[in-house]
């Protein structure tokens, strides 16, 4: 069943026409990678889904419900979690407060926190620390943990490996793989290897449009066609 579906989405940022008719879909339980060079509209696609940069044309349906015109918090309430590129911690809040702010249902607070700490034990050690003082990798864990405990059915994950050391990238990859058992994921990722490892399908974007798509089965990071799309 189609879970998330974008049809003819056009989005402007100021006067620039960023998304020029984007069509894509994510099925339930799927991990879908959104590939492309810098500045082709991948982040805007995610922001459009969250209604942070509302599209001016097109439809975005999630579990049959139209998202265009809703407020961002309603999109989040519908079960979509956003793990943004810059992680966007509340730097002056503690790790635990960051997590608490992400749990919509207060009656499930304790088990949600437990779950987050079990998934990322390092966070348990830092629970009272200011999130702004965490290392880049720990912040990424916290960002993913926030997405996981937000009672979401779909996670929009933007460049999770950006600026992280290779070992930490592997950890983040594992965490996302584990998460993909329970939620669907739309993943924007520059590291082709990581993206292909995690994803079931992929889309390639250029100049605000989807120019190619396919199954990741059998496709490697050395694929000529893909490398051409992604090289500057």
């Amino acid at each position: 069943m189609t879970f998330l579906e974008l049809e003819g989405v056009n989005t402007y940022y100021g006067e620039s026409h960023i998304l020029q008719g984007v069509d894509l879909h994510v099925d339930e339980g799927e991990v879908v990678a959104l590939l492309g060079r810098n500045g082709v509209g991948k982040t805007t696609t995610i922001r459009s889904i969250m209604q942070l940069t509302p599209p001016s044309e097109g439809t975005i349906r999630f579990q049959g419900e139209e998202l265009v015109g809703k407020d961002t918090y309603e999109v989040a309430d519908a079960g979509i979690g956003w793990i943004p590129e810059e992680r966007r911690m509340f730097g002056r809040l503690s790790v635990e407060e960051n997590l608490r702010a992400s749990v919509p249902d207060t009656s499930k607070m304790d088990e949600s926190l437990e779950f987050a700490y079990d998934t990322f034990p390092i966070l348990r050690e830092r629970t009272d620390q200011r999130a702004g003082d965490l290392s880049g990798g720990q912040q990424q864990m916290l960002a993913i943990a926030r997405g996981l405990i937000g009672q979401n059915d779909l996670l929009l994950v933007d460049e999770p490996s950006e600026g992280l050391a290779p070992q930490i990238v592997a950890n983040v990859g594992e965490a996302l793989l584990e998460a993909s058992d329970s939620v669907s994921i739309l993943l924007v990722e520059q590291k082709l290897g990581l993206a292909l490892d995690l994803a079931d399908r992929y889309y390639v974007m250029d100049h605000g449009e989807i120019i190619d798509q396919g199954d990741t089965a059998g496709v490697t990071a050395e694929d000529e066609q893909l490398r051409r799309y992604l090289s500057a």
Binding site: G14, E15, T53, V68
Partner: peptide, 15 residues
């Protein structure tokens, strides 16, 4: 107007 139109989700007025 740019601000208004982007928040209304309409096509912004081009200069």
């Amino acid at each position: 107007e740019k601000r208004l139109s982007s928040s209304d989700g309409e096509t912004p007025a081009t200069g």
